[in-house]
Design a protein around this nucleic acid. Sequence first.
DNA 1: CTGAAAGCGCTAACAT
DNA 2: ATGTTAGCGCTTTCAG
Lengths: 338, 338
Amino acid sequence: MTTARERPTLEAVARRAGVSRATVSRVVNGSTTVAEPIQEAVRRAVQELGYVPNLAARSLVTQRTDSIALVLPETATRVFSDDQFFPGIIRGVSQELEAADKQLVLMIAGSAASHARVERYATGRHVDGVMFASVHGADPLPATLVRSGIPVVCSGRPMGQVTVPVPYVDVDHIGGVAKAVRHLLETGRRRIATIAGPQDMIAGIDRLAGYRDELRDSGRRSLIAVGDFTRESGGLAMRQLLDDDPDLDAVFVASDLMAHGALRTLREAGRRVPEDVAVVGFDDIEMARYTDPPLTTVRQPIQEMGREMTRQLLRMAAGEDIGHAVVLPTELVLRESA
Amino acid sequence: MTTARERPTLEAVARRAGVSRATVSRVVNGSTTVAEPIQEAVRRAVQELGYVPNLAARSLVTQRTDSIALVLPETATRVFSDDQFFPGIIRGVSQELEAADKQLVLMIAGSAASHARVERYATGRHVDGVMFASVHGADPLPATLVRSGIPVVCSGRPMGQVTVPVPYVDVDHIGGVAKAVRHLLETGRRRIATIAGPQDMIAGIDRLAGYRDELRDSGRRSLIAVGDFTRESGGLAMRQLLDDDPDLDAVFVASDLMAHGALRTLREAGRRVPEDVAVVGFDDIEMARYTDPPLTTVRQPIQEMGREMTRQLLRMAAGEDIGHAVVLPTELVLRESA
DNA sequence: CTGAAAGCGCTAACAT
DNA sequence: ATGTTAGCGCTTTCAG
């Protein structure tokens, strides 16, 4: 049933059209230097035979595949969690790749084995370049690929020692936090706490650093609890902060999901938001508009990050030398919670 | 910076190890017919040179790529909606592919352009086979690929005229609905309505057919409203059913998400569940356990569908002739709502 | 057990 | 404007 009947080759088409392989190749690849009647004949032969170019053969000589990998270094479960980070990146990447007529191949690589397989796949030149959507801790894969000469761009500044510089695109976490904390100060808050994210991710680290910097500059003490970006951890961290200092009147939370948990804890503790305690989140996820009260938060251009990352990669794949880091601006979105 | 220094070829390794290309190839591919000391020498040369096989060259001769595509014929937004269908399929597929040491490549193909690109990619033999996670309406792509001789399996019975049979794996929608409706009848319900899914998807069609069959067999009239599998449409459809027949005492809803919407409408209409109206859903999504009351629903083995689909595909890719359809059993999960 | 040689199907100089 | 030719890097008979 599925016994693929012999696939016709260029040779077959050439014979049928009464021309040479080279001419068929030219027509198939849209060269204009072929006489119209011959083009016509070739196209008919292609049609009749149902010819489709063998991409492996083409890649072998062109050294290109016209496809690009986007690696999601997470388990399927996390990729499909309600955080809209991955879809945002994918949309951005797709847009740019579509425009460049390249094929996007997604690779989920949550396990060590899949990590290894991705490495083989990429170093084997199955793709012209690799992008990483979020990088975990000090994942060595991006650097490994760079070293093997494959164009690589990460979304999110990679951590770990820089044996070889890995190009990346990130958002301005620190600037965003600065705006958030400054807003709290300017609206009269005196005792500003933070719920930080996990300290093995750059987003967690940078957002905490931004908070620390800003408070130090304004001569205030910091008050910190650490969560893991989940709603539950946000609630627990808020509880802890209230215990540590019942007089706090504001909290900057490093993710909207955690902020959601914190809002609930505050309500249970009888604090009014924003009257007693102001709350600012980070991410501007859809849900931030529907919390009670709606969440003031820092917006980051996720989709734009995907696009920018792709533009960089395409430039590299085209042999251009590119700068090694791009940082996109973040903005404070004011809503009722602060 | 990214100027890939010349990649070493088999030839280079062979020279360095003082053997022939053929021998290096044997070692690299794990042939056992090579003397141990030579294997050792070759491996060292590979190591020193940082040799990685060129996959395009290999594919050209072996006619295999050892990678398989899973096409998600949806926009990124829909792929990442809160329905856990796609992650389930992906997990199942990944498990089987991992075991077979094949690379999974995901392709999101929501637009016409991406559809075309996937076709080129697959017919160009960039992958050894293609799986479809859900098929829309009468999407011609699966059949097109089958016709071009590439192994294809769909999850969900494809619709449309069968010019060429496309292998598929599906769950027993009709049997599941039958169990649900029979349960309602056996617990004394007399006037059983349904909220159907969209009639351009096989899941929508089959689940409605199952309801109709079962009611006909028991000599009762059917009462139907149609939704689109979203929560909102479920609420609206329930409203409509109550208007059509205020005396209804049970409703079979073709998806849990719609059932969630229906529960809300029922509450607003002052009906108690299950006392006044029994509700049964379909899908057994996570959320079904947390509705008020928890939802009796039909469970379908999504992940198993992914696994089975993959097994089929691998068998086909290995040249075996396989049966053309597999249907997996569904089961009724009793909770408080019915 | 190892090597020589013949391609896999295509593109890209180089001729004509 | 078209054809001829020489590989791209690898696997795989077939001899030895």
